[in-house]
Design a protein around this nucleic acid. Structure first.
Length: 201
DNA sequence: AAACGGATTGGCT
DNA sequence: GCCAATCCGTTTC
């Protein structure tokens, strides 16, 4: 069930970003287990990607975890308010990462409702990277954690989507990335209500 | 040592 | 739709 460490070593971050759709992301925070089906991702293509924090081989305290081998969590704070959760992928020193932008609540729905202070029927409960992370209780404490541990992990529940039901569109909020801003590296499950707002193009 | 700005969200108009 | 919230990693002085 739990994805093996080897899964994350695949050097093809675009394949993995698509393949993660339908996988189930789990967290256990203070003994409370919650999980959601991944329905939206974005790929960040290492040092060659102007939208990536590791663009131009920028090794800093913040980005160092991206250079680790795949299968660890990269969490950072955005706008001083929102935690963003990324899956680090590929081999060591290849800083590829996948941003989890939306999940569909699956387990521990009452806990998720309490964390978000709204009903699970509301799409906004886990739509968008900041909301999805909050729904699962993700914060800086989970940064650098192994994805096969007891606090955060991903399972394969054999949920499959047909290729025609997966949208491949430009990423969100990276206008500064110039020519890389238009690359279709955002993937989501068409028609899923938990997919984040910018879903028209 | 100080200033800058962002892989965003949600509340108000 | 517009805009404020809010903090830390990074850059600049």
């Amino acid at each position: 069930m739990k994805l093996p460490f080897s899964y994350y070593l695949n050097p093809d971050v675009l394949f993995l970003a698509k393949d993660l759709l339908g996988k189930v992301l789990y967290t256990q925070i203070n003994g409370e287990i919650t999980a959601g089906i991944i329905v939206e991702t974005e790929a960040y293509f290492g040092i060659a990607d102007k939208a990536s924090h590791a663009y131009g081989d920028r090794r800093t305290n913040r980005t160092e975890i991206m250079y680790s081998r795949g299968g660890v969590a990269y969490v950072y704070l955005c706008y001083g308010i929102h935690y963003m959760f990324n899956v680090v992928t590929s081999v060591e020193n290849e800083p590829h990462a996948i941003l989890i932008r939306a999940i569909e609540p699956l387990e521990g729905k009452e806990i998720i409702e309490r964390r978000r202070n709204m009903a699970v029927e509301k799409a906004a409960i886990s739509s968008g990277p900041g909301s999805a992370a909050k729904a699962l209780g993700i914060n800086m404490a989970l940064n650098k954690k192994d994805l096969d541990g007891e606090e955060i992990w991903i399972e394969d529940h054999n949920i499959k989507y047909n290729p025609e039901n997966i949208a491949e569109v430009p990423r969100v909020g990276i206008a500064y990335a110039e020519e890389h801003a238009l690359l279709p590296w955002r993937f989501f499950v068409k028609g899923n209500k938990y997919v984040s707002k910018p879903n028209k193009f």
